[in-house]
Design a protein around this nucleic acid. Structure first.
Length: 311
DNA sequence: CCTACTAGTCGTCATTTAGG
DNA sequence: CCTAAATGACGACTAGTAGG
């Protein structure tokens, strides 16, 4: 197994181990499982002496009982071994419903559900950008893009635009065509009026430390569109209007680009949730450790009180 | 300075899950 | 049942670090 593969394998174990720990905690065996979780976590983080999961233990016992047999298992077999758990969000939310004090991973739709569609009150934008022409672009959660003209005071009077990938647009909504990446590697949004909103390369391509220095805020410009449409964007091309194999190929490419972009974003979001989940588990371990320590001390105190002195 | 190693991040593919 | 979203797994890449 490659180094990389081994690392990922260990990471996968972490989740299974923590879940087993939680399940055993919920059975009532708090003391040992917390300690095991702690040690398992520490060992996992250092990347040494990783503890196999129950399923893996069974498989290892079947194949060859040595620890080195872990390296023999190929990736395909591992996929069969590793049974899928429910999503992090689901696990955490179930946890939080059982245990007070465990924060829930918030659903992305929480704000949208609160406000009916086509309502006068605007969604709270998560990011506001000012273009070189003085226009304001607000990107709200849920993919809504809002553009205000200069002169309109601040975010007031923003025109809500609906991105084409965020479900069926409400009646009368303005459609914004957007592309994941143009040929020069920038993000582009096509807005009415033959203009293109382009994410700056400086922020797009800047290393993470530079992005952090600028507050992690990407900048956008409104430009006139380049001569040709960027790769992966077909403006208002319905499937029925495609004739030539080349058009079909372009359509397939566009769909693929879109799918990859969505999956890319989904992967980012998933990793973010996973981090949150792990943090939550770690804080829970800390709390339970303190609790456990207190209980042990209390037990010792009670023992001292109850047991008569023999001398 | 170079090299090897580790840890972290990202994009992609394959698969599972959830919802219509 | 179908499709989009979620997620596990993997490889590639980079940054930091220790040792020679």
């Amino acid at each position: 197994m490659s180094k990389c593969g081994r690392k990922k394998y260990i990471k996968t174990n972490l989740r299974q181990m923590t879940m087993e720990t939680i399940e055993s905690q919920q059975d009532g065996s708090v003391t040992d499982s917390v300690a095991e979780s702690e040690s398992a976590h520490m060992q996992t983080q250092t990347g040494q002496n990783s503890i196999p999961t129950l399923a893996q233990v069974a498989t290892i016992a079947e194949t060859d009982e040595s620890a080195e047999s872990e390296g023999v298992i190929d990736s395909h077999k591992r996929r069969e071994i590793l049974s899928r758990r429910p999503s992090y969000r689901k696990i955490l939310n179930e946890l939080s419903s059982d245990v007070p004090g465990v924060p829930k991973i918030e659903e992305e739709k929480s704000e949208e559900e609160g406000t009916p569609p086509n309502i006068a009150t605007m969604a709270v934008p998560t990011s506001i950008y000012q273009t070189s022409t003085g226009q304001y672009i607000a990107i709200a959660q849920g993919g809504t893009i809002q553009i205000s003209n200069p002169g309109s005071d601040g975010v007031q009077g923003l025109q809500a635009l609906t991105m084409t990938n965020s479900g069926a647009p409400p009646p009368g909504a303005t459609i914004v065509q957007y592309a994941a990446q143009s040929a020069d590697g920038t993000q582009q949004f096509f807005v009415p009026g033959s203009q293109v909103v382009v994410q700056d390369e400086e922020t797009e391509l800047a290393p993470s430390h530079m992005a952090a220095a600028t507050g992690d805020m990407p900048t956008y410009q409104i430009r006139a569109p380049t001569t040709a449409l960027p790769q992966g964007v077909v403006m208002a091309a319905s499937p029925g209007s495609l004739h030539s194999p080349q058009q079909l190929a372009e359509e397939a490419t566009r769909k693929r680009e879109l799918r990859l972009m969505k999956n890319r974003e989904a992967a980012k979001e998933c990793r973010r949730r996973k981090k949150e989940y792990v943090k939550c588990l770690e804080s829970r371990v800390a709390v339970l450790e303190v609790q456990n320590k207190k209980l042990i001390e209390e037990l010792e105190t009670l023992k001292d009180i109850c047991s008569p002195k023999t001398d």
